[in-house]
Amino acid sequence: MPGGGPEMDDYMETLKDEEDALWENVECNRHMLSRYINPAKLTPYLRQCKVIDEQDEDEVLNAPMLPSKINRAGRLLDILHTKGQRGYVVFLESLEFYYPELYKLVTGKEPTRRFSTIVVEEGHEGLTHFLMNEVIKLQQQMKAKDLQRCELLARLRQLEDEKKQMTLTRVELLTFQERYYKMKEERDSYNDELVKVKDDNYNLAMRYAQLSEEKNMAVMRSRDLQLEIDQLKHRLNKMEEECKLERNQSLKLKNDIENRPKKEQVLELERENEMLKTKNQELQSIIQAGKRSLPDSDKAILDILEHDRKEALEDRQELVNRIYNLQEEARQAEELRDKYLEEKEDLELKCSTLGKDCEMYKHRMNTVMLQLEEVERERDQAFHSRDEAQTQYSQCLIEKDKYRKQIRELEEKNDEMRIEMVRREACIVNLESKLRRLSKDSNNLDQSLPRNLPVTIISQDFGDASPRTNGQEADDSSTSEESPEDSKYFLPYHPPQRRMNLKGIQLQRAKS
Rank of each mutant, 00 (worst) to 15 (best):
Glu59Val: 05
Asp58Arg: 02
Leu15Phe: 06
Glu110Gln: 09
Cys28His: 04
Gln55Cys: 10
Tyr36Met: 14
Pro67Gly: 09
Leu80Gly: 07
Leu131Tyr: 00
Cys28Met: 01
Ala21Leu: 05
Glu7Asp: 10
Ser34Thr: 12
Arg75Trp: 05
Met32Lys: 10
Arg75Phe: 00
Glu27Leu: 04
Lys16Gly: 10
Glu96Met: 09
Leu61Phe: 13
Gln140Pro: 10
Ala40Asp: 07
Glu57Lys: 08
Leu131Val: 09
Thr82Lys: 11
Leu33Asp: 00
Thr14Tyr: 12
Glu13Phe: 07
Phe115His: 15
Arg114Asn: 06
Asp146Leu: 13
Ala21Trp: 02
Ala63Val: 00
Asn25Cys: 09
Arg47His: 07
Asp56Ser: 08
Met65Glu: 03
Ala21Met: 13
Val135Trp: 09
Tyr11Leu: 10
Met8Tyr: 13
Pro64Gly: 04
Arg47Met: 08
Pro111Phe: 03
Glu110Met: 02
Trp23Arg: 05
Asp58Met: 12
Leu46Glu: 11
Pro100Tyr: 00
Arg30Asn: 04
Thr107Ser: 03
Asn62Phe: 12
Leu66Cys: 04
Arg35Pro: 04
Trp23Cys: 06
Glu122Lys: 09
Glu18Leu: 11
Ala144Leu: 08
Leu46Trp: 08
Leu66Ala: 05
Val60Arg: 05
Ile37Cys: 03
Asn29Gln: 08
Leu131Ala: 10
Asp20Val: 11
Met8Gly: 13
Met12Thr: 10
Met32Ile: 03
Gln139Pro: 04
Glu93Met: 09
Pro67Asn: 09
Asn133Gln: 12
Glu13Val: 09
Asp17Cys: 09
Arg75Asn: 05
Pro44Cys: 06
His81Arg: 11
Glu19Arg: 10
Gly123Asn: 15
Ile37His: 04
Asp58Phe: 00
Thr43Glu: 04
Trp23Gly: 04
Asp10Trp: 08
Tyr11Cys: 08
Asp20Glu: 12
Ile136Leu: 08
Arg86Val: 13
Met65Arg: 07
Glu18Ala: 11
Asp56Arg: 06
Pro6Tyr: 11
Lys50Thr: 14
Pro39Thr: 05
Glu18His: 07
Gln48Asn: 10
Glu121Asp: 14
Leu66Asn: 04
Met32Ser: 07
Lys104Leu: 00
Leu33Glu: 01
Ile79Lys: 01
Met142Gln: 13
Pro100Gln: 10
Leu138Met: 14
Asp53Lys: 06
Asn29Ala: 03
Glu93Lys: 14
Arg75Cys: 04
Tyr36Lys: 07
Lys16Ala: 10
Thr128Leu: 15
Thr14Arg: 10
Gly84Pro: 03
Glu27Lys: 01
Met132Glu: 06
Leu138Val: 15
Glu7Val: 12
Val106Gln: 05
Leu33Cys: 03
Lys137Asn: 11
Val26Lys: 00
Ser116Leu: 13
Glu19Trp: 15
Leu102Gln: 13
Tyr45Gly: 11
Leu127Lys: 12
Leu42Pro: 06
Pro6Cys: 11
Glu125Ser: 12
Leu127Trp: 14
Met65Ile: 05
Leu105Gln: 00
Ser94Arg: 02
Pro67Arg: 11
Gln48Val: 13
Glu57Arg: 03
Asn133Gly: 12
Leu66Ile: 06
Glu7Cys: 10
Glu96Cys: 06
Leu95Gly: 09
Phe130Tyr: 14
Glu96Lys: 11
Ile118Phe: 00
Leu131Glu: 08
Leu33Val: 11
Leu80Met: 07
Asp78Val: 05
Tyr11Asn: 08
Ala21Cys: 07
Gly126His: 15
Gly4Phe: 11
Val90Asn: 10
Glu121Leu: 04
Lys143Gly: 11
Asp10Ser: 11
Glu18Thr: 11
Ser116Gly: 14
Lys143Tyr: 07
Ala40Val: 01
Leu77Arg: 02
Leu131Cys: 02
Leu15His: 08
Leu66His: 06
Met32Asn: 08
Gly126Cys: 14
Asn133Pro: 04
Arg35Gly: 04
Glu27Gln: 05
Leu138Trp: 05
Asp17Pro: 11
Glu13Met: 05
Phe115Thr: 09
Lys109Trp: 00
Ser94Glu: 09
Thr128His: 15
Ser116Asn: 03
Met132Ala: 05
Ala40Thr: 06
Tyr103Thr: 00
Lys145Ile: 10
Lys137Leu: 10
Pro111Val: 07
Lys145Tyr: 11
Thr82Gln: 02
Phe91Asp: 00
Thr14Met: 09
Gly5Asn: 12
Met132Pro: 03
Asp56Trp: 01
Leu102Thr: 00
Asn38Ser: 06
Trp23Leu: 02
Ala63Tyr: 08
Leu105Ala: 01
Thr117Glu: 15
Met132Ile: 07
Gly84Leu: 04
Arg30Ser: 00
Glu134Gly: 15
Pro6Lys: 13
Glu93Ala: 08
Glu27Gly: 01
Lys69Gly: 03
Asp78Thr: 03
Met132Gln: 01
Thr43Arg: 09
Arg47Trp: 05
Pro39Gly: 01
Leu127Tyr: 13
Pro67Lys: 08
Pro39Leu: 01
Cys28Gln: 04
Ala73Ser: 11
Cys28Ser: 09
Ile70Arg: 07
Glu110Cys: 10
His31Ser: 08
Ile37Asp: 04
Asn25Phe: 04
Thr128Trp: 14
Ile79Asn: 03
Pro64Thr: 06
Gly74Arg: 03
Ala144His: 09
His129Tyr: 04
Arg72Asp: 04
Phe91Asn: 03
Leu138Arg: 13
Ala21Arg: 12
Ile118Met: 10
Asp146Ala: 10
Glu7Thr: 12
Asp10Met: 13
Pro64Asp: 00
Tyr45Asn: 07
Glu121Met: 04
Gly84Lys: 08
Lys69His: 04
Thr112Lys: 15
Asp53Tyr: 07
Glu122Asn: 14
Tyr11Glu: 12
Arg35Gln: 04
Trp23Ala: 00
Glu7Ile: 08
Leu66Tyr: 14
Ile37Glu: 02
Tyr98Asn: 02
Glu121Ile: 07
Ile52Asn: 08
Gln139Met: 13
Phe115Arg: 12
Met32Glu: 13
Asp58Thr: 00
Tyr36Leu: 10
Met142Leu: 14
Gln141Met: 14
Pro64Gln: 03
Ile52Thr: 09
Gln140Leu: 14
Leu22Ala: 09
Met132Trp: 14
Pro44Gln: 10
Glu24Val: 10
Tyr36Arg: 07
Pro44Ala: 06
Glu19Asp: 13
Leu77Glu: 01
Arg86Gln: 06
Arg75Tyr: 00
Tyr103Pro: 00
Tyr11Gly: 08
Lys104Tyr: 01
Val51Ala: 10
Tyr11Thr: 12
Ile70Asn: 05
Asp146Phe: 08
Thr82Asn: 05
Glu19Thr: 11
Glu7Leu: 09
Gln55Pro: 11
Glu13Ile: 11
Thr128Asp: 15
Ser68Asp: 03
Gly87Lys: 06
Arg35Met: 04
Glu93Gln: 15
Leu102Arg: 00
Gln55Asn: 11
Ala63Met: 06
Val106Thr: 03
Leu33Asn: 01
Gln140Lys: 12
Leu66Glu: 03
Leu66Asp: 00
